[in-house]
């Protein structure tokens, strides 16, 4: 349809302002700042020092690698847990319970992440609810240390990002015709072969978009690693926070931020390439 130029500008100008002023310029600034540092006379200038510093200090790049690896692990466990739940809701449970289960599934994720993490803290800490029951039932003699371990932190990350895997997987499973599974079964397929050859290939786009979002959210998460992980700043976002707020070294922080951005976009790009899904499809 032919439309007037006026309407285009009315729609586009706020969008352009948003994208240029709040997305493009700040990230360009981040990029530029990461290449600036004080030289030996205390003057600001172009320098690779922030990046050199990152590779020279093992604590920095180890944290970086650790964050990436743990995010991958989180994504994998989220998938393992989300897939059967989604399958149950779409294909196994009686249709009349489906709507109710969907509501139940989504509800916790509307609640602030902080509240959810806090809930886990009062459940799992040494004076927490789980230890109270374990002691009371005589299963253990002394309270278990469950909070502030890596396993708990990963569980917390899985819990936090669950929704973003379950929802896309449910929507692709909805589009899987039951008769495909019936046909595969009729032709002699076992459960395993049906999963491998019919269900998983069909769900690939949903799994990809879920995995990308979960990975990105874990990578950029600050609250869960900070409150449920160990106390010694071993998540990369905590390093960024320290540079910005504690050491007030913004240039170093900008370099870290840029590296994290590079890692997350790199993995997302690779994920999209491998599964041949477009970013626009992930978004919808």
């Amino acid at each position: 349809m032919k439309t007037s130029r006026l309407s285009l500008w009315i729609f586009l100008s706020p969008v352009l302002m948003w994208l240029v002023l709040l997305i493009v310029l700040p990230h360009l600034d981040l990029f530029i700042m990461s290449f600036r540092a004080k030289d030996e006379y205390g003057r600001m200038g172009f320098s690779l020092q922030n990046y050199v510093h990152f590779f020279e200090e093992p604590i920095y790049w180890l944290t970086f690698v650790r964050t990436a690896v743990y995010s991958v692990i989180t994504t994998f466990f989220t998938f393992l847990l989300a897939m059967p739940v989604a399958f149950y809701i779409v294909k196994v449970v009686r249709p009349k319970y489906k709507g109710f289960l969907m509501v139940l599934l989504l509800l916790p994720f509307w609640v602030s992440e902080l509240v959810r993490v806090y809930g886990w803290m009062i459940l799992l800490r040494e004076s927490g609810v789980v230890n109270f029951f374990l002691l009371k039932l005589g299963i253990v003699d002394a309270p278990l240390k469950m909070l502030y371990t890596d396993a708990t932190m990963i569980m917390g990350l899985v819990y936090t990002s669950m929704l973003f895997m379950v929802v896309p997987v449910i929507s692709v499973l909805e589009s899987l015709d039951d008769s495909l599974i019936e046909a595969a079964s009729d032709l002699g397929g076992s459960k395993i072969s049906i999963w491998r050859e019919i269900i998983l290939p069909h769900c690939k786009p949903g799994i990809t978009s879920g995995a990308i979002v979960v990975f990105m959210l874990s990578l950029g998460n600050y609250l869960t690693p900070n409150l449920m992980g160990g106390k010694n700043s071993l998540w990369f976002t905590e390093q960024i926070y320290n540079q910005f707020i504690a050491s007030f070294n913004w240039n170093q922080g900008a370099a870290f931020g840029f590296l994290l951005l590079l890692l997350s976009s790199g993995i997302i790009w690779a994920g999209l390439k491998l599964s041949r899904v477009k970013l626009g499809e992930v978004a919808s």
């Binding site: 709040l22 310029l25 990230h27 950029g220 960024i240 926070y241 931020g257 992930v282």
Partner: peptide, 15 residues
Amino acid sequence: LVIPGVILGISQLLG
């Protein structure tokens, strides 16, 4: 959608 929130925060701060 694909920029971690922490990075959005620091780039807004820097910008």
